[in-house]
């Protein structure tokens, strides 16, 4: 039997489609839809959880995330600058710190900081401080590496030009180099805040009080509170998407705009033109 290339391609596509339809049909027929609906999508039953999961849970998730991100950003910037320092000990300390907190699980850091810090240092500050401390430490390690890449991507001539105008090193960094570095790393930084939003769910391991619950805790408790299978978890998941999907969109938007207004494109085109002229 001989087929043209076109026929062969069509046949293959048809076979794939048939297999897919058969598989989906088998799944649909074999599934007890009533039971699936009751387990996953029993939204009517869990309606009472909504005021709290949003007003308390989502509020706390956002609070923990933003707090940890702010702390992580400041610490990350310091670490990034230390890693680029000409003073050896700064570099070593920063490198050790970053490798440590990138290498251990966030859950472990949460437990150690949440239980260990109040015990060892006999401090009695509110829980959210420990949460922000723990999550911020972990994220600062990632943010530091991101920012370091951003600082490296700013051409050396920028610092030279700023210094030539009489700016001291710190002023040149703050006014000229760091703003450009941040612009370059906006997309990966948005990524980092998305990761933090999800990591804030780890707070539940600290045995928190009702007013400190974030969304995952509400969702988890909801399983026992309502006779709706794991629908509360589905609700929790959807609420995370409400927070993270806009951030993903924002990250894409940043990526597009930073590409559109690409920095200092003249160099390459002019070098190319120069070669053209010389040739």
């Amino acid at each position: 039997m001989s087929m043209t290339a076109r026929q062969r391609s069509l046949t293959i596509k048809a076979i794939q489609l048939i297999v897919l339809v058969v598989a989906v049909a088998a799944l649909v027929l074999a599934t007890n839809w009533g039971k699936v609906g009751k387990t996953f999508f029993n939204f009517g039953e869990v309606a009472p959880m909504f005021p709290d999961v949003i007003l308390v849970g989502m509020r706390n998730t956002v609070l923990y995330t933003l707090g940890a991100f702010a702390f992580g950003l400041v610490l990350g910037l310091i670490l990034a600058l230390m890693r680029r320092s000409e003073f050896g000990p700064y570099r070593w300390i920063a490198t050790a710190f970053i490798e440590f907190f990138r290498g251990v699980p966030a859950l472990l850091v949460m437990l150690v900081v949440g239980f260990g810090v109040p015990m060892a240092f006999e401090v009695k500050w509110p829980l959210w401080v420990n949460v922000i401390l723990a999550l911020g430490l972990v994220s600062s390690a990632y943010i530091a590496e991101t920012l370091r890449a951003g600082l490296q991507a700013v051409p050396k001539g920028q610092l030279e030009a700023a210094r030539s105008l009489g700016m001291p090193q710190w002023r040149a960094m703050i006014t000229i180099v760091i703003p450009q570095a941040f612009k370059i790393v906006l997309p990966p930084l948005t990524n980092e805040i998305i990761l933090l939003t999800k990591d804030s769910s780890l707070v539940y391991v600290l045995g928190v009080m009702a007013t400190q619950y974030e969304m995952t805790k509400f969702a988890n408790d909801g399983i026992n509170q309502y006779n709706a299978g794991i629908t509360p978890l589905v609700v929790g998941g959807l609420l995370y998407l409400v927070l993270t999907l806009p951030l993903t969109a924002l990250s894409r938007w940043f990526e597009r705009t930073t590409q559109a207004t690409s920095r200092a494109p003249k160099r390459a085109t002019e070098a190319a033109k120069k070669e053209e002229v010389a040739a």
Binding site: G157, E160, S164, L165, Q180, K183, R267
Partner: peptide, 28 residues
């Protein structure tokens, strides 16, 4: 001592005016 570079090294995140005022305000 003013310096002019081969690659211009203007600050891309500032306007032309910003480039010409930033050191005046921050340094002088």
């Amino acid at each position: 001592v003013g310096m002019v570079f081969q690659q211009f090294n203007l600050f891309p995140h500032l306007t032309v005016l910003g480039n010409c005022t930033v050191a005046q305000t921050k340094v002088l």
